[in-house]
Design a protein around this nucleic acid. Structure first.
Lengths: 221, 221
DNA sequence: AGAATAGTGTCTATTAGACAGTATCCC
DNA sequence: GGGATACTGTCTAATAGACACTATTCT
């Protein structure tokens, strides 16, 4: 009985929700796309293993981003080699440099979630299901936690935050109502003194994430 | 590397949230209280193992109640025997017969969650943390799913359902507002033709759970 | 009749959603 | 000045919370 960890790493790039996938360099499923992941080492904690596998396979250091456990998958036939149970994690990250392929991975890339889930058999193992569950978790968490900010940089504008909601949920939100609601939720945003004009037009105030961990009342889709 | 399953089985008894615990009949932690659970068999699926262990240790058949995965726990030192990763499940059940002790269990009993969590070291392994997480999951799920009905029988009154919310959340709810809100949520309740006077007073209409799986808008605590 | 619980109705304050106008930068 | 984006404000409909009364059973 072997235990593995797999990661659903999500980011918002080019106005799309994208996931980090690797092209497998080893059997089984050699040459096919899969989620990054690998075997749990003896003596190693689960989140540590997740961070290690992510770095080994994609070169991305799990620094400054949100990592949480998603669920475990243990269907007896999920891995043709042997009986495995995998503990899946989701990681939410701001836009990051292009990943580089590492151990056991022939290639690493960001791919739009829409594409990965458009047709079955795109991902190895049961990774399509894991990705679906991870995306659904992320969507749900935006409703009742300030987690949308995990997709932004350290400082961000309200418009950038709104774009995250729009992209992840696939909806459009009224900028004025969004602004009112989000600034009215205590603990979500912490204003800074700085502004930016990176989006053009009038300078926008920059914010950091506040201390709140849950949103009362939640932001419903 | 061994994989186990553990269960947080919750019910509402005597106006309290109670959990199913067993007294361990084997080392380690022999004689101490723990959550029911055990090793995953080769070729066995995770939820199947959860149901099997529950029946083996407590005699309770996982029929007609809600079983869902909670999370996995894999700290390297969580089991003194060997390296184990456990996949925890939560089960929500209506009031059930007193459990009987089975394999590996010297005793099985319902115990109020309040008591179990009042003092540390009450439960073996990391089961206190698992119980805490399970209770918090149940509390949260009452907000946005019709899962409160899982604590009731097949047919139940609105007052009985309200008592579930009150006991699990530890709050009091206005009966009139609760009635209005819950009957106004499409798909939550399906009225039957029957009534009951088991609570005394005017006969109350009996309901079954409807088709809804999520509540829009949610019931906030 | 009285006790006990079920169910319905009303008022009010808050919130969500739709929508328009003003402000401040860059070129 | 023109273009672009940021921010503020108003109206209205729906909702949540507080609260009181009527209805139907059993003893």
């Amino acid at each position: 009985m072997a235990v593995t960890v797999d990661l659903v790493v999500l980011t918002v790039r080019a106005d799309e929700l994208q996931a980090l996938v690797i092209r497998r360099g080893e059997e089984p499923f050699r040459g096919e796309w899969a989620l990054p992941g690998g075997f749990l080492d003896p003596g190693e904690d689960l989140p540590t293993a997740a961070a290690r596998e992510l770095e080994e396979e994609t070169g991305i250091v799990a620094d400054r981003f949100h990592l949480e456990q998603l669920a475990s998958y243990g269907a007896p036939d999920r891995d043709p080699r042997m009986r495995t149970v995998t503990v899946a994690y989701i990681a939410l990250a701001a836009d990051l440099p292009t990943p580089r392929a590492g151990t056991d991975a022939a290639e690493a890339a960001w791919r739009p979630v829409r594409e990965l889930l458009a047709t079955p058999e795109t991902l190895a193992f049961d990774h399509e299901q894991i990705l679906r569950d991870g995306v659904e978790r992320a969507r749900a968490k935006l409703e009742y936690t300030p987690l949308a900010a995990a997709f932004c940089g350290r400082e961000f504008t309200i418009t950038e935050l709104r774009r995250v909601y729009e992209v992840v949920w696939g909806t459009t939100l009224d900028p004025r109502n969004f602004h009112r609601k989000i600034t009215g939720t205590t603990g979500f945003l912490e204003p800074t003194d700085a502004t930016t004009t990176r989006d053009g037009g009038r300078p926008a105030r920059l914010y950091r994430v506040g201390a709140a961990t849950t949103l009362h009342p939640p932001f419903l889709r």
